[in-house]
Design a protein around this nucleic acid. Structure first.
Length: 571
DNA sequence: TGGCCTACG
DNA sequence: CGTA
DNA sequence: GCCA
């Protein structure tokens, strides 16, 4: 098999670790042999539990004992015989009064919520999300029965960071869309809706990340939601200015270093108060350390301030905000003396650009800079010898304003629904997930990324193009910046990973949409089509922002083994 | 001191 | 080179 | 700029 990966599917694998407990743990009617008792009624038949009653009131104890007897293999009288220890205690010292430490470290020790939610969920949930005692996090994860989900051991998390809050998905499950074929509305002659195989659906009762009880002391980056805004946001903002500047100036290596350092700081759970704290953060070396020191002293970083206020930085930033203009082009344009968007429009020959009109616009937009560059003719003509295969930069200039606007979550969702409706008309039975920043919980997105698949692998090929064409015909896709099909079935290329179809488009909601207001804003929309085998891998992959922090967790999607990309978003 | 993710158009 |  |  060319493509090995840890099964990404949410199919719960319920092969339990058989506990050594047996008779010591009573189940309510201990007698009935397993064959007789309808197995379905017990939701956690492989797991025996021990309940630490301390700190629980009588009703809670009764409730938990009932749940335990009803749904687990049994409630043990002795912690040593249980697979899982349930306790409301959160202090190590206090727990030690009830359970010997060496026993505790050999079990999963979780909060009562684990039991309640596992039962509600219908099967055992990862113990790591319900760690009762911080010191027991690792052993709890390790000893979690019935849960194959090995956490990744990210190197940067071994420094003992504890983590933060959950990624609060306000609309849990709404990011996953299936064809609305289930509507009973029209037509009796329509074929029955195509059933979606379970392995393409999100876990039925959704994974409960949301509960505030999620142990916000998870050690692992892959279990820890980087907070949308971190405790060191101000510091990060300063460093990011320098990072941007380095990137704009072509010092990519340096920029990369800043990006990594910023990532690491964003994962640091507390406000940084001392240099000592920061020295332990990975990717913080001599230079950045000194910058942090200055920040701790003065609340700012002079280098960042200087950069921010420099005309050069502002110009380059402005230019790169045009889709298709990167650092190199920006520098070149700046070197030509261009400074403003108007300059760019003239240079690239945007239609309305006559000089009078230009100055008029300058007034209207109250740009402080008057016609900047030395009386060069309108910039094009002979000069564009090098530049003007970029007729589409003109288009990008026209789109810049719209595309720089943020997209609120409800509009993201509406776009997803609209696109899905069209896709369903084209090919019923498709499944999709909105990924990217949206799925990471950001309140606003720069663009919308959707990953699609179809249970029938054969139906996926060519779908991307067909969907884009349909959306284009219907006026929803106004521009296609990029369209790629399956990479040929090169027999030498073993990985399917590259065989995604994707299209990068500009999308506008149709008038029929409730969110279609006046002149709707055009949005960047990326469509990614994956064969079903790699659907969830693609979903994950498209949710991970740059820079990727490598984390040792099984095998990579592309089969190169050993590492997985995890976590982090700069700024 | 060399290397920093990768793949595509 | 620019984008994801 | 940081790390191996």
């Amino acid at each position: 098999m060319p493509f090995k990966r840890p099964a990404p599917t949410p199919t719960q694998s319920n092969s339990g670790s058989e506990s050594p407990s047996g008779s010591k743990c009573s189940s309510e009617s201990s007698s009935p042999p397993p064959a007789k008792r309808p197995k379905m009624t017990k939701l956690l038949p492989e797991i025996s539990v021990y309940l630490v009653q301390a700190k629980l009131d009588a009703p809670a104890i009764a409730e938990l004992l009932t749940l335990g007897e009803r749904h687990t293999k049994g409630v043990c009288k002795d912690a040593a015989h249980a697979d899982v220890i349930i306790t409301a205690i959160s202090m190590r010292r206090r727990l030690e009064r009830h359970v010997p430490w060496n026993i505790a470290t050999s079990k999963a020790v979780v909060t009562p919520q684990w039991l309640r939610e596992s039962i509600a969920h219908g099967s055992a949930l990862p113990c790591g999300d319900y760690v009762a005692i911080e010191d027991l996090h690792d052993s709890t994860v390790q000893n979690c029965p019935d849960c194959k989900c090995k956490p990744c051991a990210c190197s940067d998390s071994s420094t003992g960071f504890s983590s933060t809050s959950s990624p609060r998905r306000s609309a849990q499950g709404q990011d996953h869309l299936t064809s609305p074929t289930t509507s009973p509305t029209t037509t009796s002659n329509k074929p029955a809706p195509i059933p979606i195989p379970a392995n393409l659906l999100p876990p039925d009762p959704p994974n409960v990340t949301n509960l505030a009880k999620l142990s916000y002391t998870s050690r692992y980056a892959c279990q820890r939601a980087s907070p949308l805004v971190c405790p060191n946001q101000d510091l990060v903002r300063e460093l990011d200015i320098i990072r941007q500047s380095r990137a704009l100036e072509g010092e990519e290596r340096s920029a990369l270093s800043y990006a990594r350092a910023i990532s690491a700081i964003k994962a640091y759970p507390e406000k940084i108060r001392s240099l000592k704290q920061v020295q332990k953060v990975p990717y913080i070396g001599v230079k950045i350390s000194s910058l942090v020191e200055e920040f701790l002293d003065s609340g700012q970083i002079s280098e960042a301030q200087k950069i921010k206020s420099s005309e050069r930085f502002q110009t380059l930033s402005l230019f790169t905000s045009v889709y298709g203009i990167g650092p190199t082009a920006a520098r070149r344009l700046a070197a030509l003396g261009l400074r403003s968007l108007d300059d760019l429009e003239i240079y690239y020959g945007v239609e309305r650009g006559a000089v009078e009109q230009n100055s008029q616009i300058v007034e209207v937009e109250e740009k402080p800079r008057q016609s900047g560059w030395k009386g060069r003719d309108k910039g094009r003509g002979k000069d564009d010898a090098d530049g003007l295969g970029d007729s589409w930069i003109r288009v990008a200039l026209g789109l810049r304003e719209d595309l720089s606007k943020k997209i609120p979550r409800d509009e993201v969702e509406e776009m997803g629904r609209v696109v899905m409706r069209e896709l369903d008309a084209l090919e019923p039975g498709c499944v999709s997930t909105i990924v990217g920043g949206y799925r990471r919980g950001k309140p606003e997105s720069n663009d919308v990324d959707i990953v699609f698949t179809h249970p029938d692998a054969g139906k996926v090929k060519g779908l991307c193009k067909r969907l884009v064409r349909r959306l284009h015909e219907r006026g929803m896709v106004t521009h296609v910046m990029h369209l790629s099909g399956f990479h040929g079935h090169d027999p030498l290329r073993t990985t399917h990973w590259d065989s995604l179809e994707k299209s990068l488009t500009v999308f506008v909601l149709p008038p029929s949409s409730p969110l279609h207001a006046g002149v709707p804003v055009r949005r960047r929309l990326d469509l990614i089509f994956a064969p079903p085998e790699v659907y969830w891998t693609a979903v994950i992959g498209w949710c991970v922002p740059y820079p990727f922090v490598l984390c040792e967790i099984g095998e990579r999607a592309d089969g190169r083994g050993g590492q997985e990309r995890v976590d982090h978003v700069p700024a």
